Amino acid sequence: MDKKRRNILRGLAIAPALFASHHQSASSKTDNLAQHRVQYSVNAYSFNSLLRSGEMTFFDMMEFAAEIGLNAVDLTGYYFPSYPEIPSNSELFPLKRRALELGLNISWTGIRNDFVNPDADSRKADRDLIKKWLTVSSNLGASIMRVFTGKHSYDGFTRDEVKNWLVEEYKICAGYGEESGVIVGLQNHNEFLFQSDEIIDILKRVDSEWFGLILDIGSLNAVNPYDEIEKLAPYANYWFIKEHVFPNGIKTEVDMKKLAPIIRNQGYQGYISFESLSDGDPKQIVSSMFIAFRTAYEKL
């Protein structure tokens, strides 16, 4: 057999192994990307004063989000002029269309509610409000709607009794969520449920795929908030990143290099939303938060 022919045959023998190796490498890279695919959003409260004064609109907010490379926006309900009444579809649908034009999703909405209130009629009124706004969420194409616990005085009742109210109300609301195709997301908003174990207990007791957690990293006051965040991470349907955490109640700038691995190690694939609560230019602050987190995350 001549040398040229031997080289050709050797090449043919090696080629499948090389192809398999390349395919496995490409497949592994694709799997890795799929396991850690996240989307970025911004919460309307970052622009609270601007939206309330009329200096900014939801359309302006969407254009800002698209400009800095976010994937979505969170259109909180109480910035609609009609709130608590629901807006008309003629107001909602132009927002939905503009989001499409900008390549954005409208990932969530949110309302105010208080299920800590001992008055059952008041709780029912808030429950009815949630049901109405779940319809708004659905019409906008949002996949999740934020609700709170509330922080009403519950003098004369124990914390366990209040937790029973919460579970009862959230179970009913989860049913409304299933009807509208929108997950009801509890934001741990530093109001009644302060510890990760309490929050997990409520989630387990409600026990519905239509009730989940919007993990607010800025509302976990503990010796080490990152430990609390890590405990809650497996339950998060949505992440809410603020610029500060509060170890031992002390306001401290969030360490994106500590936070990013917690999210990535869960294989989380959903939305991560940024919210600024600081004085200053919210556009600049949100942009800086986004860059800092994305840089930390992509280096892992």
Rank of each mutant, 00 (worst) to 15 (best):
F194R: 06
Q187F: 01
E209H: 04
D207T: 00
G218T: 03
E179S: 06
N188A: 00
E161H: 11
L166M: 09
E168Q: 13
D155N: 15
V162L: 04
K171V: 01
K163P: 09
H189Y: 11
L166V: 07
Q187P: 00
I183Y: 05
D160I: 08
E178V: 05
N221K: 15
D155G: 11
D216N: 06
D207A: 05
F157Q: 12
V206R: 10
E179V: 03
E179Q: 10
I214W: 09
F194W: 11
D197S: 13
S196R: 13
W165C: 11
T158G: 00
K171F: 02
E198Q: 15
L193D: 08
D216G: 02
N221D: 13
W165R: 13
E209G: 00
G175W: 12
N190A: 13
G212A: 02
I217D: 03
E168A: 15
E161N: 05
I214V: 11
L186D: 00
D155A: 14
S180A: 14
I217Q: 03
D197E: 14
I200W: 07
S196V: 11
G156W: 06
S208R: 04
N164L: 14
A174Y: 08
K204F: 07
E161S: 11
F157C: 04
S180D: 04
W165L: 11
L215F: 04
L203P: 06
H152W: 09
L213N: 05
I202H: 12
E161W: 07
G175A: 11
E198V: 11
Y176D: 13
Y154P: 05
I202Q: 13
I217K: 01
R205F: 03
Q187K: 01
E168N: 12
G218L: 02
F192A: 12
I214Q: 13
L220M: 07
G181I: 03
S153T: 11
G185N: 08
W210E: 02
A174F: 07
D201E: 13
Y176S: 10
K163R: 15
N164A: 14
E179P: 04
H189G: 11
R159I: 14
D216T: 01
R159T: 15
I172H: 08
Y176C: 05
T158D: 02
F211P: 02
I200G: 04
F157M: 13
V162A: 03
S180P: 03
I214Y: 09
V167I: 15
L186M: 03
R205A: 03
